[in-house]
Design a protein around this nucleic acid. Structure first.
Lengths: 350, 350
DNA sequence: CTGAAAGCGCTTACAG
DNA sequence: CTGAAAGCGCTTACAG
């Protein structure tokens, strides 16, 4: 069982007294090999601890048989993407895919850089949460014959497999909850407005306000980047307003954590002085101060489905593109208050 | 600038009117090429948007020139490891290394599985946070000629490059802080006792107690796994004791988050009813309830140094092995209380 | 300084 | 059902 560095197809072939072609055939079992021969070869493979060299396999077959998937992740510090990675990983290896991750830190240049890197690594599929401006790059990927699945968001004018979440509804639910609990002046902090996810959540936010007859005030809708720093700073802006909101809906977990930091550093009480509900649940949400009410989306499930779609795409490149939209779930905890709970709720409803 | 799938060394050579050997030489610039020729080739490379196929490069040269690093991470859900990955990634690409990550979820079998996978991907270096029982595997890696650097912990009886943190001192500081603030009955929750990191932290904990004349009570030192679930359950055990501790020192961030969950779900006040200090700081620690006092170790810095060591190891395989030990920093926030603050502290000191 | 040629470890038509 | 041979895209002695 020593290191198998050096055990090659040829070693197995020699020892089994067959050609390398035959050994290759029993391994890939696409062609029929005589039972007797197959058993003998299989035995030798075990005995020698032989493992195919995937690099050589990849160099040889450009037919998607290499089973290497490039994964373009916007931000590995975001636990939501970590969940996606975990889901992808788990199901990928079950299908004998290997994964190589490129974490581009929400930087468009770096995303392009990684695409080049991964190409030169001869991946034959890409999983990508595309950034604005990636349209032509992703398009090219598809034209070049790569299997592509988008996660978290698609790309305008491009027909692609995408697996995402119902951002509109998730945002709507969050804001509706805030309203039912008595808030009417609700601020919103979100990410890059060129990312569809951002705009869907903004739309859900606005729809909820509209449904309850609350006017939309653009001054308390602040969009920038989906990171901790923006969460801190945009919350400061919101709270510095002459007429600050009594509640904030944050559009992702990093923004939420940043918002909490600002609120706490100002010594404001949640939810009494300012309420908060965030998109993205975290497994430690209940240990935050206070336990956070949040919109849960399952990254793990997104990962699972992504691999399924990719597998289908590779085996049947003609399958029509699909868009899978998962439901979200509002996890109600204590960061929004409950001023008007049940009965009183009606007072607010128009 | 269309997809360069298909542009090969030979294409460049043909267009430049030279041999592929020459093109290869200007790319790798190990041998001298005539200035004039070099410029012409370089121009064509740009023009064609040529990028070497790393798979072919890797297949060809078994000399560590392939620059692919396998990264074995115990748990990608742990933000500490995410920081390490970020550090590694950032510096690796600067040195033109590519990284492939295997997340083994603290599972020994899966770690072995990934080693095999990564071997068959022809990585020429490994970065590994070894699990107990990995001794012979890692030893084999070194014998097989892979460059290896251990992170977070080394391996008994193996002389390896390792970059870690002063776990003993970090734990000592945390517990000493608890003592100075008035606690004398301090519980400890930690991970797998076969992992050196665990034992170093336990030792630091015990040394602090001993220094202040507090007897060590094995009943309140609970070790299992370094995950959220263990944090929840071991904290329950601790609190169910006839004489529960007034403070808990948790040995890593997942345990801390689990402990907080238990404490909160029982409605206990921190730090009044039970104080807590954790190993591993998180960027949202101040937004926890209450803001968490924690031992900070810089994963990012560990990552940076790891790449540096790996680079040295590859360029000079004979360099003596080193062990880099980084300092930790106690971030004092509000989870330990301040009963006896400054002056009173002396009352406790023996 | 540069080219012809071998070979890294596989897979896959092409014969038989 | 199986083998001989070509070739994936590179790098590197070996000559010149």
């Amino acid at each position: 069982m020593a290191g198998n560095k050096g055990v090659s197809l040829k070693d197995v072939a020699d020892k089994a007294g067959v050609s390398t072609a035959t050994v290759s055939r029993v391994i890939n079992s696409k062609t029929v090999v005589k039972g007797e021969t197959e058993l003998r070869v299989q035995k030798i493979i075990k005995q020698l601890g032989y493992r195919p060299n995937r690099v050589a396999q990849r160099l040889r077959s450009t037919q998607g048989a290499s089973k290497l998937i490039g994964l373009l992740i916007p931000d590995i510090q975001n636990p939501f993407y970590v969940d996606i990675i975990r889901g992808i990983e788990q199901y990928a290896y079950a299908k004998n895919f290997a994964i190589v991750i490129g974490n581009f830190s929400q930087n468009e240049e770096r995303q392009k850089f990684y695409i080049e890197i991964l190409k030169s690594e001869s991946v034959d599929a890409f999983i990508v949460a595309p950034f604005p401006g990636m349209n032509e790059y992703v398009k090219e990927l598809v034209e070049d014959g790569y299997a592509v699945v988008c996660i978290d968001r698609g790309l305008a004018n491009l027909d692609l497999d995408v697996v995402k979440v119902d951002n509109f509804q998730g945002a709507f639910d969050a804001v509706e909850h805030l309203i039912k609990v008595g808030h009417t002046r609700i601020g919103h902090i979100s990410g890059n407005t060129l990312i569809p996810t951002t705009m869907e959540r903004v739309a859900g936010y606005e729809a909820a306000l509209t449904k309850y007859g609350i006017a939309i005030d653009k001054d308390i809708i602040l969009c920038r980047d989906s990171d901790h720093k923006s969460g801190v700073e945009l919350t400061e802006q919101l709270l510095d307003l002459p007429s600050p909101p009594s509640a904030i809906f944050t559009s992702n977990n990093l923004l939420t954590l940043g918002a909490l930091e600002t609120i706490h550093s100002r010594g404001l009480k949640i939810p009494e002085e300012v309420a908060i509900v965030g998109f993205d649940d975290m497994y430690w949400s209940m240990s935050l101060n206070p336990p956070l009410t949040a919109v849960r989306q399952s990254g793990f499930e997104i990962g699972r489905i992504t691999i399924e779609l990719l597998y289908q795409r590779i085996t049947d490149p003609t399958r029509p593109k699909v868009s899978i939209v998962l439901k979200t779930e509002l996890m109600v905890r204590n960061s929004c208050g409950h001023k008007l709970k049940t009965a009183a709720t009606n007072a607010v409803v128009k």
